[in-house]
C-alpha cells in the first residue's frame, strides 16, 4: 500500500500525506494505510473520487455484516423482504469526537425519522439510513433543518444526500450505484443537504462537458466577475422574469437590462434568450 501512496504522489504531485483530513473545502481526503491523503478537488473528476472512495482503506466495507448493505453493493442476491418503497439517505459526518459520539449521533438522527428500516455506519465518516415511504416523510428542507440542529449540538459538519423512493427489487443495487456517485458529487456542493434535483446538472456537466476545450473556453469568456455570475444565476432562478430578477439583485430594472446588454456585446450571449441563458448558467456550474 505504501507503494500505492508513492505512485499516487507521482500521478498527483499536489497530493499530500497528512495526519488529519484537511478541513479546506477545496481538498478531497481519503485514507490509505492509516494515512490521510489530500488532493485538490479540482484535480479529480467525480469518477476518480468515487473510485478512490471505493479502494481507500477507510471505505473498504468488506467488514460490514449487514443484509441491506450486502444487497445494495451486489454482495448478496437476497432481496430484503420489506414491502413498501424505501429511500436511502447517505450521510457524511465530520468532526465526530469518538466512536461513542458516532453511535449517539446516529441514534439521534434515526429518532428524527418516523419509519427507519435500517441504519448503519459504513466507515468512520459515512453511513446509510434506509427509510420507508410514508405520508409524512421529511422533505429536503426538513432534513436540512434537522441536520443543522444535530450539527449545532454535536459540533459536527454533516452532509446528506436524500435518495428517491424506490421499490425493493433486483434493480435497486444498480440504482444505488448511481446514487452513490451522486452522493459523492454532492459532497462538493455548497448546500449540505442535496437530492437528485440539486446534484444532477453539476454531475452531468462534469461527466460530459467540463473538461472539454470548448466548455473551458466558453466558461472563460463569460466568467467576467461575481456580479455577472450573480446576474446569470438570478435570471435562471427567477425564470427570466426581469422584474423579479431586478428585485432579487436589488437593482433597478433598467440597470439590469443595461448589464444584460453589456454582457451581450461582450460575449455574444443574449440572456433574454432562454437557450443562451441556460447555456451560460450551465457554463458557470
Amino acid at each position: 500500500m505504501l507503494g500505492s501512496i508513492a505512485k499516487l504522489l507521482e500521478l498527483y504531485p499536489d497530493a499530500k500525506v497528512v495526519v488529519e483530513p484537511s478541513a479546506d473545502p477545496d481538498d478531497y481526503n481519503f485514507l490509505i494505510q492509516d494515512q490521510w491523503v489530500t488532493i485538490k478537488k479540482d484535480h479529480l473528476s467525480t469518477k476518480e473520487k468515487f473510485l478512490l472512495s471505493l479502494v481507500s482503506q477507510d471505505n473498504n466495507n468488506k467488514s460490514i455484516n449487514n443484509n441491506w448493505w450486502n444487497f445494495l453493493v451486489h454482495e448478496s442476491d437476497k432481496i430484503p423482504s420489506e414491502k413498501s418503497n424505501v429511500r436511502i439517505l447517505q450521510f457524511e459526518v465530520q468532526k465526530l469526537e469518538s466512536d461513542d459520539r458516532a453511535k449517539e449521533w446516529l441514534n439521534v438522527f434515526v429518532d428524527t425519522f418516523d419509519d427507519v428500516v435500517d441504519s448503519f455506519w459504513i466507515n468512520k465518516y459515512t453511513g446509510i439510513l434506509i427509510e420507508k415511504e410514508t405520508k409524512t416523510n421529511m422533505d429536503k428542507l426538513e432534513v436540512q433543518r434537522m441536520i443543522q440542529l444535530i450539527d449545532s449540538d454535536f459540533y459536527t459538519k454533516s452532509r446528506v444526500y436524500v435518495g428517491q423512493f424506490w421499490p425493493i427489487n433486483e434493480k435497486l443495487p444498480n440504482i444505488f450505484d448511481m446514487e452513490r456517485q451522486l452522493f459523492h458529487k454532492s459532497l462538493e456542493m455548497k448546500d449540505n443537504v442535496n437530492n437528485l434535483s440539486t446534484v444532477i446538472l453539476d454531475f452531468l456537466i462534469e461527466q460530459n462537458l467540463k473538461n472539454t476545450d470548448m466548455f473551458k473556453s466558453l466558461k472563460k469568456k463569460i466568467d467576467i466577475d461575481s456580479k455577472t455570475t450573480q446576474m446569470i444565476n438570478a435570471l435562471y432562478k427567477c425564470d427570466s422574469n426581469l422584474t423579479k430578477t431586478a428585485k432579487e439583485l436589488f437593482l433597478h430594472r433598467n440597470t439590469l437590462l443595461y448589464r444584460m446588454e453589456k454582457f451581450h456585446e461582450q460575449t455574444g450571449f443574449d440572456l433574454k434568450d432562454r437557450d443562451d441563458l441556460v447555456l451560460c448558467f450551465l457554463l458557470l456550474k
Binding site: 429518532d111 428524527t112 428542507l141 436540512q144 433543518r145 434537522m146 443543522q148 440542529l149 449545532s152 459540533y155
Partner: peptide, 20 residues
Amino acid sequence: TAPKDRDIAMVFQNYALYPH
C-alpha cells in the same frame, strides 16, 4: 478555532427541534 471551542451560541433561521 473549532466551533465547539468558541464561546458562541447560535440561533438559526430554519430552527428545528427534536420531535421526539
